[in-house]
Design a protein around this nucleic acid. Sequence first.
DNA 1: TTATTTTTTTAACAGCGTTTGGAAAACCTA
DNA 2: TAGGTTTTCCAAACGCTGTTAAAAAAATAA
Lengths: 197, 197
Amino acid sequence: MGIVERRERLKKQVRNDILKTARDIAREDGWQGVSIRKIADVIEYSPPIIYEYFDSKDKLLETIRMEGFDELRGGFDRIKEVYRDPEKQLVEVAQSIWNFSVEQPEVFQVMFNQEGAFVQSKKVYQQELDLTGNPVWEMIARLRPKAGEKVSMTYYEWWCLTYGFISITMTTQPKHAFAKVEPIYREGVRRFIRSIM
Amino acid sequence: MGIVERRERLKKQVRNDILKTARDIAREDGWQGVSIRKIADVIEYSPPIIYEYFDSKDKLLETIRMEGFDELRGGFDRIKEVYRDPEKQLVEVAQSIWNFSVEQPEVFQVMFNQEGAFVQSKKVYQQELDLTGNPVWEMIARLRPKAGEKVSMTYYEWWCLTYGFISITMTTQPKHAFAKVEPIYREGVRRFIRSIM
DNA sequence: TTATTTTTTTAACAGCGTTTGGAAAACCTA
DNA sequence: TAGGTTTTCCAAACGCTGTTAAAAAAATAA
C-alpha cells in the first residue's frame, strides 16, 4: 500500500513548491507582487488548491517567517558548538544574521513585516524571543555572568541592534549599499559587545 | 476677486482632510485597512477626487512619510537650540523619536515601511540621511571632534540604533509592551553615546 | 439667460483573497 | 473489467482593491 505514501510525498512536494514560488516572486517583484493567483499560475494549479495547504495567505507568510527563524536559530546552535568564547560566538551570530539578510532578503522582510510583507500574528516572535534554552541568550549570559535579570534586557538590546540595523538598512538603502554598510554593522556589534562586557 | 483664494483654501483643506483621514483609518485598523474608497467615504467625496490631490496612493503615503520626517527634524532643530551639551542633545533627540513613535505609531510605520505600510520610493530617505546641515549629524560631530569622516559612519549607526530599536519593538511587541521597553531603549542610547565619546 | 469652464461622479477595468458546487480523476470492490 | 466511492481539482462567483474615461453637475463668465 504505497499509495498513501506517494500521495503524502506529493502533498509535501506541492506545499514546498507553494512556499518556494512565493519567495521567488517576492525576490523578483517584491512582496507587493505576490498573489495567490500568481503562485497558482507558476505551480500549474488553480488558486483554490493553495487553500488545501494553507488556511490563508497570512498563514502562508507566517510559515515562511517561521522557517526563516528556524534556519537562523539552527545556525546559532551550530555556532555555539563550534566556538568556545562567548564574544566570538556573538560576533559569529551577528555575521550569520547579516549573511542571511543578504542571501534571502525576501525571507528577512517577511520575518520583520518589511517592504510590503505583512503577517498579522506576532506568535512567532513570542516563541523566538522566549528565553528558555535560547542559544543567544545563553551566550550573553556567559558574557555577563553576574548580571542576573539584566541579561534579558541585554538580550533584547541585542535583537534590536542586529535586526534593527539590518531592517533600517534594508528599508532605507538601495541594494548596492549593503556592502558599504557591512563594516559599520560589524563595528557597531563589536562596540556593543565591548560595552556590555 | 476672492474666488481664487477661496478655492485654494478649500483645496488645501480637502488635501489635509485626505491625509488626516488616511492616518486615522490606519491608527484604527492598520495600514492594510486604508483604501482610497474608505478615505473618500469619510471626506464625503467620490474616490476619483483623491486623484486630483495625489497622483496615486503611493504618493499619498509618501507625503505622510515626508511630513513625519519634517516634524521630527523640526524637533531636532529645537533641541539643538535649547541645549548646549551635545550629549544632552542626543539624549533628547532619542527621547523625541521615541515619543513620536508612541504618539503617532501609524506615521512611524509609513516612515519605515512597517506593518503593511509600503512606499516604493526611497527618495525621502536620501534627503533625510543627507549630511549637509543635518542637526543630528552636527551633534555627533561635536561629540567626536577628531573623528573626521568616521562621523558619518557614527551618524548612520545612530539611525540604526534609534529607529531600529523602535522598529523592532513596534514589529515584534504588542502595544502594551512599549512602556516596559522604553528604559531598555534609553539605556542602549546612553551606552552608545558613552561608547563613542 | 446662455456659453464656458471647473468640479464631481458614475461606471468600468483588471486584479485581489477567498468560498462554493460540482466536475473530473483516482481508487477500491466485486 | 464495471460500478461505486472517495479524493482531488477547478470554474465561477462575491466583495474587495487602485485607477481611469467619459459624462453629468455645478460654478463662473459673458
